[in-house]
């Protein structure tokens, strides 16, 4: 498996660390109801198909990356920096 880091270019899997689903980018605001926190912390989709998750380029530029990949075909269709990302 290879990921194309937007800064470093195409790199081997061993340079990256997997963090988890992209849900971690949507932290509930202050005073959010408990249900939102429950969702944020515990509830994850497990899709057969396209999913987005967070990877850390620990042996490269030390950036967090938002990776779009397909769990069925293993195709990686997008890698973008979490920093400077526009919602």
């Amino acid at each position: 498996m290879r990921l194309t880091c937007p800064l470093c270019g195409e790199r081997d899997r061993r340079e990256f660390y997997y963090y988890g689903a992209e849900d971690y980018l949507r932290r509930p605001g202050e005073g959010a109801p408990l249900a939102d926190w429950d969702d944020y912390l515990h509830l994850r989709d497990n899709p057969a198909g396209v999913t987005k998750d967070l990877w850390y380029h620990e042996a490269g530029c030390a950036q967090w990356l938002l990776v779009t990949r397909n769990t069925v075909t293993h195709e990686i269709s997008g890698v973008e920096l979490v920093a400077g990302r526009k919602e």
């Binding site: 470093c8 790199r11 061993r14 340079e15 620990e58 042996a59 490269g60 530029c61």
Partner: peptide, 8 residues
């Protein structure tokens, strides 16, 4: 920036 074996 990469690795030399397991060293950054």
């Amino acid at each position: 920036r990469s690795q030399l074996n397991h060293m950054n």
